[in-house]
Amino acid sequence: MNLNLTRRRFIKGVIASGAAATTTGVWVAANGAARPAGAVERMIRINVNGQVRTVDVAPQETLASTLRYKLGLTGTKLGCNRGECGACTVLVDDVPSYACSVLTHSVKNGRIETVEGLESADGTLHPVQQAFVEELSPQCGYCTPGQIMAAVGLLRENPNPTREEARMGLSGNICRCGSYDSYLDGVMRAAQIG
């Protein structure tokens, strides 16, 4: 969970960008074609999974929308689109962040990592991914990318967490299948794999 990212900060970001915040959870920011009057279209460069990508980003656009609908990185899931579930968790400068609650413009100087960026070029899975396979951590899999990114963020900060610390680290990610026990097993195994 990114303690530096709050709803207040998100809303302040929206206000700063000159757009109205939506609380309805509607994907209005998904399409750059329609922009509020007065807003300025901006081509920006963002660093995603080590690649600098140039992308047309509306002022009110969330990072989740940019990743999914502009860059085709659909591994980042939207479960609620309003900061309740954690399915859209990505890393911004190593910090797990809800991509539905981050404005893309606010992270244009940041280093963004999604689940698609973890696998090596030769197809070797990241230790967290490998551990999640071995423990069969996912059930339906919809929250899995978010759980994985939260786990990767945790292990970078704390490579050998206790089970309780892992539980805290992933507590911002809901799993409706209730696979928490298997996710924790996965994190503990990932810490062993290194």
């Binding site: 999914r68 990185l73 659909t74 591994g75 980042t76 899931k77 939207l78 999604t114 689940v115 698609e116 973890l118 696998e119 899975l125 991914q129 999640f132 396979v133 069969l136 996912p138 899999g141 919809y142 899995t144 990318p145 994985i148």
Partner: peptide, 19 residues
């Protein structure tokens, strides 16, 4: 065993309807 879809779930490659 390793179910055929689990790799897609941990890499984000498996597609749900909205993807």
């Amino acid at each position: 065993f390793v179910p055929p879809d689990v790799n897609g779930k941990v890499t984000g490659r498996i597609k749900y309807a909205e993807d």
